[in-house]
Nucleic acid binder design. Structure first.
Lengths: 192, 192, 192, 192
DNA sequence: TATGAATGAGTCTTCATTCAT
DNA sequence: AATGAATGAAGACTCATTCAT
């Protein structure tokens, strides 16, 4: 009773997630969503007015899940090197993974929505940069990283990762190529 | 006769380029192209069957023009540092520039085409990497660059540039942010 | 039990009246009514099956209220001239008034219902004519009106008023224009 | 070549006229028009964007036909009485005629369009009033009409006719009733 | 009785694509 | 070769109406 509507909302959002992951953003029609969640046309409109709204909701749901990239997976007192490695491993998976990943849709959405929408993507990106920066500082402090400019290094890494992601999507990258790139990034930080 | 048709072909391609630069890829309709080149509907179909074909042709034409990023602008014997600076300046313009640039359209095309994509984008990217690698080697040879792994550095720079491009398009980057990123990239190579 | 349902019925009818007065007839949806009376969708259907039925009910309720145009406002023994003036003043208000008046809705309903229409509109119109006719006869009898054909005069006045009403709605009439028309109508009856 | 498009335009307008005459204004859908003129959906949109535009066009075509109510049918030097009679006969036909008449649609259109559109209906009405006024003056001049206030009389007649028209549409009027009303209107002007 | 979520038919609108000229 | 009118399929959106609770 309110529960049910929330339940169905979630069901729709999950179905939509699948569709966006498969078709990107622009190509997705309300009909696609309708078919994906086995609901009636009017039924869908009861919850969401257009694909943009739905996409935002999908992203919001996403945010709730994979928010803290750096915490959770490792204890507070884990070595900076280890945290970095875990982070890179995760990134590699994302960069190479074709299915079940929304990055293409996100890019398309941003192209389309043209600025007037939620700065949440930017926020996410910036908070990742800051977390990475703190990690690098920690690494420097405990002597395991070179004494680089933490801020610049964090930015460089994030841009390169973004570049890898898009290159992987647009022209395909082999696992080896990604490994090499990540290895080089790590090599710029970690001693030995 | 064959001449005239070639002429018209070129005219269409140029008009299409303008349209793609302005609207990206997916939003472009045959009607847009028709209007942009003042040709008849049926006339356009005589030359191209759909926007995808047209886009590929636009890209092919592009290739012919701006292929050699590193030559042409500077003499063969220019200092590596100078060539690098010119390259970065050009990249900065592209990264920040909204109008008259096809990168969004390229991304969109790749997202959409999914799989059957022309290897031309990849070829372009790889040839740029190789040129950059040779440049770095030259810089190392003449003592103006640090003794880095040229191949890895070239890859890293290209990925970061791609990342900057997409970040600029999707969430907006200030000129300062781009400058800082480029400065950091240059700082990793150039001595002093 | 039966009481409560009657109460709710009235509540719905009143809310519907407001909606019809504001939006006319055709544009009104069941949803509009639902929203206007804060009842549930299904609840409304328990009482009325469609907007047509509701509109008829609204009209029936109306009939009960403003039926006797000529009585009530003035005592039985009021002078014919005075009654006529009061009637005209009221008509003027209605003709010019945009809000809170159902005439547009009535017209629309009649246009739409096409054929199966309730005879209630006609009854109302005819009873008004007859009342007006009696009034004119009274005026003639007491010497304040010219000796016209009362029946014909009553008809003419009612038709002209109807014409004024529709002209006001469809092309807008100034207050002056209405005044002139009413003055001319009165001038055809009242001596002096 | 341009001729043909004009031809088809006319064909559509005529089909639309039939539809509006039958269904009024609001109920008419683009699909109705499409079916009425045996054209494709997209084909119709090539010429008209919505029913409102079409309706205006229908009205414009109408205007071209029955413009001058008072001339054409009678010579310049016809007696005022005769002209009036011809006018009334024509009005009677219109008032009683159900089919093939656009007045209901016009009313509906005006209700809906709410002022922002063409004042052409008003213009038509006012020019009719003026023509009638001149006719009355002519009748007075040649001694066949009573010495009434021509302007007021013309207005009264036009309002009454409009009232008759709407009454006929909304509650049905017998031919006798219309005859009586017109006879009364004429009686107020014509001597004997 | 009463609720409001769910349905699906109907309308609008846009485009890629064809075809007679 | 070239034209542009015509087509129809596809997607968006709204509402009257039903139905399980």
């Amino acid at each position: 009773m309110g529960e049910r509507s929330t339940q169905k909302r979630q069901l729709i959002i999950q179905a939509a997630r699948r569709v966006f992951a498969e078709k990107g953003y622009k190509d997705v029609t309300m009909t696609d969503i309708v078919e994906a969640c086995g609901i009636s046309r009017g039924g869908l409109y009861l919850y969401f007015d257009n694909t943009g709204e739905l996409f935002l909701e999908v992203m919001r749901a996403e945010e709730g899940m994979a928010d803290d990239v750096f915490s959770g997976q490792l204890g507070e007192d884990a070595a900076a090197v280890d945290v970095l490695m875990v982070f890179f491993r995760e990134q590699k998976r994302e960069i190479l993974g074709k299915k079940g990943d929304l990055s293409m849709a996100v890019y398309e959405y941003c192209f389309t929505a043209g600025g007037k929408e939620e700065p949440s993507f930017r926020r996410r990106f910036e908070s990742a940069i800051m977390a990475l920066e703190r990690l690098i500082e920690a690494g420097i402090a405990d002597g395991s990283f070179y004494e680089v400019d933490a801020r610049a290094a964090a930015h460089n890494i994030m841009y390169a990762l973004e570049g890898l992601r898009i290159c992987s999507r647009t022209m395909g990258l082999t696992e080896v190529a990604v490994d090499e790139a990540l290895f080089a990034l790590a090599g710029g930080l970690v001693m030995e």
